[in-house]
Simulated assay, not measured.
Amino acid sequence: MSQIGDIGALGRHYLQAESYGAAAFCFYRAMLEDRESGNAWNGLVLSLSLMRKEQDSQTALARFALQPNLPYDRDLIAFAMMLWQQNPRALSEWVRGVVNHHSPSGQDKETLNELADDLERSYGQLVERHGEDALRAQGMLSLEEYAGRRLELDWLMDETFDQIINQVKQWIDSSDTEAVLAGVRLLCMLPDPRSEKMLRRVCRNEELDGKVRTHALLALRWLGVRGNARIHKMGESFVINLDDPKPELTVSVPAAYKPALDRMKLWLAKQQGFVTQEEYEGHASTDEPEMPEALAAKVSEAEIPAIYQEVVHMLVRAAYDKYYPLVPTVRETRYWAAALLMLMKDYVEGIGESWTYGEPEQEETAVRHRNWLLSGSPDYYDNIDAAKKMRAAFNG
């Protein structure tokens, strides 16, 4: 097997082991050695996406579409549609790039061309309504602009491991939260004994933000480290088994909160008339982890804007990251759902939109849950106010 094959196979091994940072490093190196390796591009995008590195995922996807002579990869279409769902310009250019450079055949080519046509029309309508400059100010970049951005891993082309490690050490020593977090997120993709050592130190440093310490623990796992690791929170030391972290260690919304999110959507579906009061009570009053299939089908008919859901996801993740592993056990999920709905309502009304669903259920336990969630995002209402001003400027 060639060296490229070896490192690509190692990347797949790390990917299957959920060591996404080590996998990204391997796939990036494989891509540098052979830019026409479909396996390397696919693995790189997948690894970055699983770490929720959205900007780097977009950049890698853009470069992928503009790279000639790659094999057609249908699997990456879903990633592109997810990452550029708010940018029809970039998505249309991405689809055109895949058609022109990767030679899909038959029905796939026809479908992609039709999709690109639709997206170009959508973008044209946005330009007519708002103007290209306003859209650009909102972050609606071209595919070339996405491709030209710097990946975190691009450092490997310009500097040695020693230079990168020394720079990250300076970021961590600065104690600036954003700088330390940037260093932590880079170290997870640098397979070197010094990376592990620095991440373990961050986990134990109570002078750093709680979110940073949790992300350092997660970065150790993404780096491929297994076994025990210590994390300090609230003046206590906790040992976490990185083979099977308890509580769940994730960059996404923890699975324990899914029943609460389901009940949140169930309530919104009830308010829109898709679910009866009896059907709502029949499920909301229990802590059953899964929604019955027939009820889930009704809930899926309700219109719940993705941005509203992402806001509450962000609040859950922020509080979870701050306090991990001292996170509450999610019981009485109806009240957790009510807390999320209160915060969602505040967001919708705060940015100047109409909340048409009525008042969420008010209960003392729900208020306590809401306050816990807010404690992880103390600037929540400031951010809402900033979003309102940005929307006002965009809409003229």
Rank of each mutant, 00 (worst) to 15 (best):
D244K: 15
R136I: 09
F161C: 08
L249S: 06
L343Q: 02
N69C: 11
H13W: 08
V168K: 13
E279T: 01
I384N: 00
D162F: 10
S300Q: 02
Q3K: 13
D158I: 06
D287I: 05
W355F: 07
H283W: 14
L220N: 14
W336A: 08
S103N: 12
E114M: 09
R89I: 12
E110N: 07
L326T: 11
A78H: 02
E159F: 10
R334I: 01
D243I: 01
R391L: 01
D173Y: 05
R317C: 14
G97F: 04
W222V: 08
A392P: 04
V225E: 10
M51H: 07
A60Y: 05
V327D: 10
W94N: 02
L223I: 09
L186A: 11
W171S: 09
I4S: 15
L315P: 03
F274T: 00
V253C: 12
S105Y: 15
M82V: 03
P289V: 01
E132A: 12
H101S: 07
T250L: 05
S103T: 12
A80E: 02
G38C: 05
V45A: 08
Y308N: 01
N205R: 12
A134R: 15
A339G: 10
Q170Y: 10
A137D: 15
N395M: 03
P68S: 01
S19D: 06
Q272T: 03
G131W: 03
E120R: 12
L141E: 15
R263N: 01
G148W: 07
L32S: 12
A60M: 05
P289E: 03
L119G: 11
V239P: 01
L15T: 01
K169Y: 07
G148R: 13
E353N: 00
E144G: 09
L343M: 05
K389N: 06
N241S: 05
K265C: 05
A78D: 04
L220K: 13
I165M: 14
A147T: 08
Y257C: 06
Y146A: 06
V98E: 08
